[in-house]
Design a protein around this nucleic acid. Sequence first.
RNA 1: GCUCCGUUCGUCUAGCGGUUAGGACGCUAGGUUUUCAUCCUAGUAGCAGGGGUUCGAUUCCCCUACGGAGUACCA
Length: 508
Amino acid sequence: MSNRKVRVRFAPSPTGALHMGGVRTALFNYLFAKKHGGDFLLRIEDTDQTRFVEGAEEYIMESLEWCGIKVDEGIREGGAFGPYRQSERREIYKKYADQLIESGHAYYAFDTAEELGALRQKGEENKETFTYNNATRVELNNSLKLTKQEVDAKLNAGESYVIRFKMPVNHEVKMNDIIRGNVNVNTDTLDDKVLFKSDGLPTYHLANIVDDHLMEISHVIRGEEWLPSMPLHVLLYEALGWVDTMPEFAHLPLLLKPTGNGKLSKRDGDKLGFPVFPLFWKAPNGDTASGYREEGYFADAFVNLLALLGWNPGTEQEIFTMEELIAAFSLDRVTKSGSKFDPKKAEWYNHQYMALKTDAEITNLFIVELKEKGIEVEVALVEKVVGMVKERAVFVKDIWEQSSFFFETPTEYDEKVVKKRWKENTPAQMTAIKEVLAGVPNFNAANAKQAVSDYIEKNEWGFGAIMNALRLCIVGAGKGPDLFDIIEMIGQEETVLRIEKAVSVIKK
RNA sequence: GCUCCGUUCGUCUAGCGGUUAGGACGCUAGGUUUUCAUCCUAGUAGCAGGGGUUCGAUUCCCCUACGGAGUACCA
């Protein structure tokens, strides 16, 4: 039973953008599949036409692609078990629903939505919850209560109906979850779920079981929100006679909101102060939500941090490439409890990846930003700057903040620094230093430093005071890498101009 | 309400009867740095509570509390 080929699926419904919890579910499925040399399928569960959202499918695929999660079989890739979109498989499901009716595991129900709504409301008034189950079904408008003639008459008249699962009475369903171990539920606490809707499409429960069976899925790895319906699913496998090939189940802990309570949901959008989506999302109604990609996260950093949310390798390694994740991944090291996402740690991850990436890689990204600002400089020069400042940045967009003074003459001077470093005699000192720098032959960092140092020493000035004031002139603030490196980069002429400008602009 | 799942520093987590309860993020301090940041070092802080079982419980069992999920002709 467990030595067949590993085949897993990620089965989102296209009801909007895929949030990071969904991406993590996809990732765990992918890691598990690749670890075991198996297949990763993408199946679109669009059996609820009313909730279909334009662009969602593309968004899902693009998100997986960005993350480096490669789909082996899916709506775009094709495969031997297609189609992979449930709306295109509608012909398949009815047969199995009928089979369940014939075998006595399911029945027709003619109750209208209004009737059931009324019953639920009445139940609520009596502080009870109406449940369509073995206690109530015999009194309702279905093929269990009605005679065969009555049922046939309704069916022939084209009356709309649903097909419900006939939950066994007082039966203990014993299940096993890879992450949680044994889970037992008594069927009396369950209801007769609708398997087949009046619109001719199956509900999630039926479609899911049928497709997983037909697609030869070996392991169902999904979010914990599905745990309560696992008994129904197991019972369905039994009723359809598929127990031999029933997949193993693993219910992943949920991703929780960092503040307050509840699971992370699509609707959280941008309210949380960090993106909940992998990519920027624009809904058909015009609503937008930010994405990790657009916020400046590296895909590999995003994948890395997601992987360690609810899973850990049992070692102290925290930085993983996808290959390393695949090698290290194991479902029995998945945590049982839900995890809150920490945006600070996410930034730390990105910072780690920033340091890991080559100057050339970062330069390519940074050059795009420079172009947007209308700045065009030699690539070699940009790369040199990037090499100097990248480890100070979390995101590529931070690099500008850390390096703008390489490309532009400061127009403002940080007030705090001015107050602290710009004394009565500073302008005169700066002017003197300017003359020294202007006279340096073979202008470079080492020579400039030598000249300035000698001059400071000769005059018995404080090295710190002069250097800080000089930095203010060159950078406009009290930040940045080695000052002489900056001076070399901007050149002798620009250095002189900046000092002159600072002396004339900064007022004491 | 009912059913199911869960509970170790603020957060992510290691721990699978005997540990000075470990790591990471964050925070604080010190060092490095002519500045800022990086970086390095150190510190900070935790087994939800109560019963058992046991020579011994963070670890096993029960109860309570708290958190989460589900309870649709949505997935």
